[in-house]
Write a protein that binds this DNA or RNA. Sequence first.
RNA 1: GCCCUAGUGGCUUAGCUGGUAGAGCGAUGCCUUGGUAAGGCAUAGAUCGGGGGUUCGAAUCCCCCCUGGGGCUCCA
Length: 607
Amino acid sequence: MRILLIHSDYLKYKTKQKTKIAEDIEDMKKSGEFENALVVFTAVEKEDEQNTGEIVENAVSEIINVSGQVKPDNIIIYPYAHLSSSLGSPQLAKKILENMEFELKDNGFNAFRIPFGWYKSFEISCKGHPLSELSRTITAKPGEEEKAEEEPSKWHVLSKGELHDPNNFKFESKDLKKLTDYELGKLESTGEEPPHVKLMREKSLADYEPSADAGHLRWYPKGRLVRDLLSDYVYNLVTEYGAMPVETPIMYDLADEAIRTHADKFGERQYRMGTKKELMLRFACCFGAFRMLSDSFLTWKNLPVGVYELSTYSFRLEKRGEVVGLKRLRGFTMPDFHSVCADIPQSLEEFDKQIDMCMQTGKDLNINYEAIFRSTADFYEENKEWVHSAAEKIGKPILLEILPKRKHYWIAKMDFAAIDYLGRPIENPTIQIDVESAERFDITYINEKEEEEYPIIIHCSPTGSIERVIGSLLEKTAIEMNEKPPMFPTWLSPIQVRVIPIAERHMDFAISLAEELRASNIRVDVDERHETVGKKIRNSATEWVPYTIVIGDKELESDKFTVNIRETQEKALMNKEEIINRISNEVKGMPFRPLPLPLKLSKRVNF
RNA sequence: GCCCUAGUGGCUUAGCUGGUAGAGCGAUGCCUUGGUAAGGCAUAGAUCGGGGGUUCGAAUCCCCCCUGGGGCUCCA
């Protein structure tokens, strides 16, 4: 509930015209005038409907509090819808306002309620003292009993078809142990900053943009390249799986009932725009995908069918203190894949394939995932065998959460998490079986009996957000720092080969070598600055360049080059073909994009 | 959002209880044309996060705000 309190010399009002939701009133209530009045403009909001008693109580106590300070003769409850962008239903709103009036009278105040649902003219004279204009947001604190009643989830470790108590399980995987501790709230924090935050800036990938909102990043050319490569990777993966890439708007009109209901599930964590139309920014691709699917004609022959979109961007108004680095953003890019399945059995088949797809990304990106399977108790009981076989696909113990009752739109989901340097999970891929949205968005298909039916929808993000993938890769370099030099895999390295000419006379040769490598789809650059070889080698290393080639007199004479290999820290003698073959082999099957930077380092901008 | 903590050239930072900012890296210029993780010299670059206050005088003390980090809570 939103209220605006005006302490006025007088308030005059007159009803003019009825609206559809107008209450019936006696003639004497059609106009009125009140002196020394505390006018409480009030908007009842959607969320107030959960707990009307508490809302009335809190609103009244706030009004009494203010009136104790300004000492008005009258308190006027004035229904004023324009204070909120998320109004509750008129019937309930009226009821709440009536109760407020009653409570105030009961407390001995001269309270009066202005008629609801009429167009009214009014005139108010604000006193203008410091407390004469106040606004308040009234919320119902969640009742203690209500919280206590909610049954907690049951946690297990599922290993080789058997359930174990997480508190006594002998963990072989440190990562699963950490994930379990985190989920059960047992993880102790060291209070450090995750190392990827520093790395993303140091490597000129991304940085905070203080002129935007918190949690929105600027991406420098190298970072943009890495994002694009990962996007290409997911695109190739899901299209191979059969998904159809689409693109949908990033904002939606909350006047649409289905959009509004789906959006309201997200609560305060969304961006809303106070434009003429009440718009929200999407927090996932669901809105566009569902609207597209509900407008398309589906038959059982089409199913299962999937649409895929890379959400550049999704927006979530995460709480201020939760926004950190690449791990949790307010604007992020999420591969979002929705597949429509005829029924539960078909959705389980799809789920299995999507587990394979998520596992594949772990392999391709070389990120270790630990898995959590979550489902309602009902779903688990009915599909125990399938759950266990799905868990088997992970090939190691997983965490299992059984929720006593369904509280979200999904009945079963699997989340995959990477573990960061500080031992905390970064939630990456996810698969969810959604049993609510088809009906809400009126997505139907024609079954074999020619009847219209609601399908099951699976949400899947095979990698999780692109930013989190980059974050996980950076965290991994920090974790492995002592075992090997930090770097990206070659296919993701913004610069794959650096050519270093020793003196001026080696320049032409170096450039032509670079151009030949570039022609073989290798991202190569030339450090032709007037610096010592030692310094250029060092620079190349701090930029994590996998291959560095020094060109001097010897190289002009022979066809062999001395190549510094970052991964093994070896110096190898290779000819041009060997270099090209080695790199092509290393990046095989992975996307390629050309170097989006000047070939010559002297031309390069320092971000 | 709440609690704790921090903010000094592009980056890393020195600056004790108030006296008007010092360095390294980087950048630019000159010298060096060199063989595998920092060559030498010089120059430029700072409204000390912003606003207000206390004071003869504030990077330093006080208040408000912004931004970063950590914690709580939360991630349908």
